[in-house]
Design a protein around this nucleic acid. Structure first.
Lengths: 150, 150
DNA sequence: ATAGCTGCAAAGGTTTTGCAGATGA
DNA sequence: TCATCTGCAAAACCTTTGCAGCTAT
């Protein structure tokens, strides 16, 4: 892991989470977090497995799912289902709160960010009595490339 | 199918879609659309299958998936993946454009509607060059009941 | 020492596919 | 008639689980 402020913070969050829950600090767990935070953009379990397969702390699929569950719980990654049957994930430390445009033709995913989502959330909270922890907003359509090819 | 303006329109949309694509008008397809439009709220393939199992035009799972694909394509239903591994669907004729609050504790899904989503869509369209056809906005958190139990 | 973790392989659950027989156009 | 559709069962696919051996504490 290259030294960086972000990765340090992320590691600290994970470590205190593990400590708080009484979970063990294993090589595999740190290797997985490290690998995930070196990926820019989205990933699925299969591709993460492939990436780690030949590295020092190669892990099994079962351990990936196990650790991903922990990382979801402590908020270090987010889970998405962009309409396929495979779940996709992304890191969510800082720069969080962005949303996604998904091209229904080629599958490209582009991010955007708009603070107005918070206002909608506020309105929905008030009218329904929910306590909202996070959100996901997806726009589906054609990316510029596919738009021009049609 | 009980006579109703909505169901008539829906049928017409489906019929012209089938005609335009050169697809056949089969009993199964109409029975499925009819069944779906008699369901209020969300459903998954399994429950739809159970509902239709003992009726006149019982259909197989394979045919359900096939027809659901057609209905998605012509916009008469929408597909959701609320974080589970099962896809859920709902009709989308009129009254459309609503969004969802999902309780992460008990799984309850509540709908809300807010026109401001369109403005966010407009902004995202302009900045990315996408042509957006539809959206999905989910807020995850605790419903009033689970909030008070925690 | 020992409770918890990993890896393997098998199981589970959802969705897709291949093909023979049925059917709308 | 005949290309398409349905239903069945098998396959494919992603995810979860059980258990034996390993390891952090």
């Amino acid at each position: 892991m290259k030294p960086s402020k972000e990765k340090d913070s992320v590691m600290n969050i994970f470590i205190s989470y593990l400590k708080r829950k009484g979970y063990r600090k294993t090589h595999e767990r740190f290797a997985i977090l490290d690998e995930i935070y070196s990926i820019s953009g989205h990933f699925d379990v299969e591709s993460l497995y492939e990436k780690m397969k030949n590295k020092k702390y190669a892990v099994s699929i079962a351990t990936l799912y196990n650790t991903i569950e922990l990382l979801l719980e402590c908020g270090l990654i987010k889970k998405h289902q962009f309409g396929e049957n495979t779940s996709r994930y992304e890191k969510s430390f800082k720069g969080g709160n962005h949303d996604h445009l998904i091209c229904t033709a080629c599958g490209e995913v582009v991010e955007f960010w708009n603070p107005a989502v918070k206002e909608i959330q506020e309105a929905a909270t008030v009218s329904t009595g929910f306590e909202v922890n996070y959100h996901a907003l997806y726009f589906y359509g054609l990316c510029p490339k596919c738009k021009s090819h049609k």
